[in-house]
């Protein structure tokens, strides 16, 4: 039979021992080892350098003193710490806008996932998921510019003004005046940026619901809504949590869009319509013009952010891992 032919050795010449071949293995081994360890070396050097350079700040205020300090007032010195450096307003802003982003993106992602997996007609499913993945490819500077000229004046500002004018506006969380550049504006824009990753993970976990369970539920007379509510969503819950954490990790580190939209005021306020600042944004905005001592402060902020994102990413991976392998997590 012709099916036997592929089993023949494909080419004895390629396996024949040669002088060069004997060196191939060890050289290849060292080459890939070098490639693999470069990641660790780069990571280590970055961590080491930033920590060393920010030591004067940590020494002056203590690690937790730096994290909890609520005043950021830079000095002009080139050799000693004369200003006051407290990271709390920026940590607060970063966390707050990430929470806003997640609060907007996650329900949207669940809706999109359920629609593409369960409700949408077959021919629409593929294009729709491609469209969402395309969203992830838009460079953040483009989103930042669109935010300034479209989203902020025509979307976030009307929403903010409306919310401030309703009874909700009495709550400190929604208190006015509605500043155009605020935690809310930044959070909304970042939610657009994290939507693709959260959707990808959620969609995959929903799709992995065992067909049997689904059919069983239908067989028992469950409606489509009941199947989604009682089978698919509970099944996909760990994946959803993991996807959310991945989204948070990305939101924490988003720079360009946040720098353009968060307000850059180095203060913090309870209201989501308050123009505050975030770790990435303050580094981006002030790095070029900072005195050496302020740069130590910015590096200390960088270390803080690195720790935060590492923590969130490890947490996310643990959760995603525990919920079983999810195809979407490769996207991160």
């Amino acid at each position: 039979m012709s099916t036997q032919t592929p089993l023949e050795p494909s080419g004895p010449t390629s396996l024949r021992a040669s002088g060069r071949g004997r060196w191939g293995d060890p050289v290849f081994r060292w080459a890939v080892l070098g490639a693999a360890s470069s990641v660790l070396i780069i990571l280590g050097v970055m961590m080491f350098r930033t920590t060393i350079d920010s030591m004067p700040i940590f020494r002056e205020f203590g690690f937790f003193g730096f994290l909890a300090g609520d005043t950021w007032s830079t000095g002009q010195s080139r050799s000693e710490v004369t200003g006051e450096y407290g990271a709390w307003p920026f940590i607060y802003g970063t966390v707050k806008l990430s929470v806003i982003a997640v609060a907007i993106a996650v329900p949207l992602a669940i809706g999109i996932s359920l629609f593409t997996n369960e409700v949408a007609p077959k021919w629409l499913r593929k294009p729709l998921s491609y469209a969402i993945d395309t969203l992830a490819m838009i460079p953040s500077i483009v989103i930042a510019v669109v935010a300034i000229f479209f989203f902020i004046p025509y979307v976030t500002d009307p929403i903010a003004r409306f919310l401030v004018s309703t009874p909700l506006g009495e709550l400190p969380f929604f208190a006015g005046p509605a500043q155009r550049q605020s935690y809310f504006s930044a959070g909304l824009m970042v939610s657009i940026m994290i939507l693709p990753i959260v959707t990808a993970v959620t969609r995959e976990t929903f799709a992995n619901t065992p067909e049997d369970e689904r059919n069983a539920a239908y067989a028992m007379g469950a409606t489509r809504w009941e199947v989604m509510r009682h089978v698919i969503v509970p099944r996909g819950f760990p994946g959803m949590v993991g996807g959310t954490m991945l989204g948070v990790g990305r939101a924490l580190g988003e720079t360009m869009v946040v720098a353009f939209t968060v307000g850059s005021s180095q203060r913090m306020g309870a209201s989501i319509f308050f123009g505050g600042d975030a770790i990435t944004a303050v580094i981006f905005n002030t790095f070029a013009t900072s005195s050496p001592e302020a740069i130590w402060g910015l590096l200390a902020l960088g270390v803080t952010l690195f720790l935060m994102t590492t923590f969130v990413n490890i947490l996310a991976r643990l959760i995603v891992m525990r919920s079983g392998r999810v195809v979407g997590d490769a996207a991160v």
Partner: peptide, 21 residues
Amino acid sequence: DEIDWAAGTIGGNGNEGVTAN
């Protein structure tokens, strides 16, 4: 050239940024 501004203010990057804001 950089001070600790009051709460309730917002910042812009460069004269260009303040103008735009």
